[in-house]
């Protein structure tokens, strides 16, 4: 099975710092692989181990620094990597990003069987790029994938974790799947994996390489744009109480009763 794994480098959003002007401080912020993409990588590697002769190519769209993340992912057992990078891609929204990545996959790996993405990226959290890629390649998509319970080159049986329950679906390849958190253990790079990953080439794809024009990507190719950005400020007024356990319980009881309109005994 020929698998295209799409990953994204994101700022570590648990460690955001603010400037005096309520804008996000971007200098010195650590970049990490989007956590959902690690689940996607695990699922792709699992499939590779189950289907003989499988091959995984990792794709990412971003600045040249993203190469280190591609190497780390190859060290887990992926075979090759593509860095979709061009200054002209800057400012792409999800539509333009979906188009750009789909073109790169079509250019580098026209005979792919499966595209694996994370369900969300923690910085934008739009959950749109995966389905957008599937749309541009005109292939079926399965979102919210929890696990793959049966696989062959031609078909996949997948479970989806939805709001109301667990759905099992069957899809034929080529297809795109978006992966949720996995139950199995996170893969770790082995020493020989790290050594061989350092030797593997990372192919760079520019706008011209994938046959796009400036009108189709970046800011010009994006139908949406940010008109303003502002800090999210809470309107709740905290009162902090530091008391003994009995008084805390009393306060908890009273607060629940006062604000819920009474509660069950």
């Amino acid at each position: 099975m020929k698998i295209a794994l799409c990953i994204k480098q994101v700022p570590d959003t648990t460690d955001i710092k603010w400037t005096e002007h309520n804008t996000i401080q971007r200098e010195g912020v650590e970049s990490v692989i989007n956590p959902y993409d690690t689940y996607a990588a695990e699922l792709a590697l699992n499939l590779k181990s189950q289907i003989e002769g499988s091959h995984i190519t990792v794709f990412t769209m971003g600045p040249t620094q993203a190469e280190s993340m591609l190497r780390k992912t190859m060290a887990l057992g992926c075979d090759s990597a593509v860095l979709i990078s061009d200054k002209k891609f800057a400012g792409s929204d999800t539509y333009a990003t979906g188009l750009t990545i789909s073109r790169a996959i079509r250019t580098v790996m026209p005979d792919f069987d499966l595209i694996v993405c994370g369900q969300f990226a923690v910085d934008g959290d739009t959950a749109q790029t995966g389905p957008a890629i599937a749309n541009f390649l005109d292939i079926p998509q399965v979102t919210y994938v929890k696990d793959c319970i049966d696989c062959s080159d031609k078909n996949l049986t997948l479970t989806r974790e939805l709001e109301d329950g667990i759905e099992t679906v069957k899809v034929s390849t080529p297809a795109l799947i978006c992966v949720m958190k996995q139950d199995f253990e996170t893969c770790r790079a082995k020493i020989n994996g790290i050594i061989s990953a350092a030797k593997k080439p990372v192919r760079i794809c520019t706008m011209e390489d994938i046959g796009l024009t400036p009108e189709k990507t970046g800011i010009k190719g994006s139908p949406t744009y940010v008109s303003k950005a502002f800090r999210n400020v809470s309107t709740h007024n905290a009162k902090k109480y530091k008391m003994n356990t009995a008084d805390s319980v009393q306060l908890l009881r009273e607060t629940i009763e006062k604000h819920s309109g009474g509660c069950d005994e």
Binding site: I16, D123, F230
Partner: peptide
């Protein structure tokens, strides 16, 4: 965006 820390219109 950014994990809810920034709002964008």
């Amino acid at each position: 965006t950014f994990g809810g820390q920034l709002m964008a219109t």
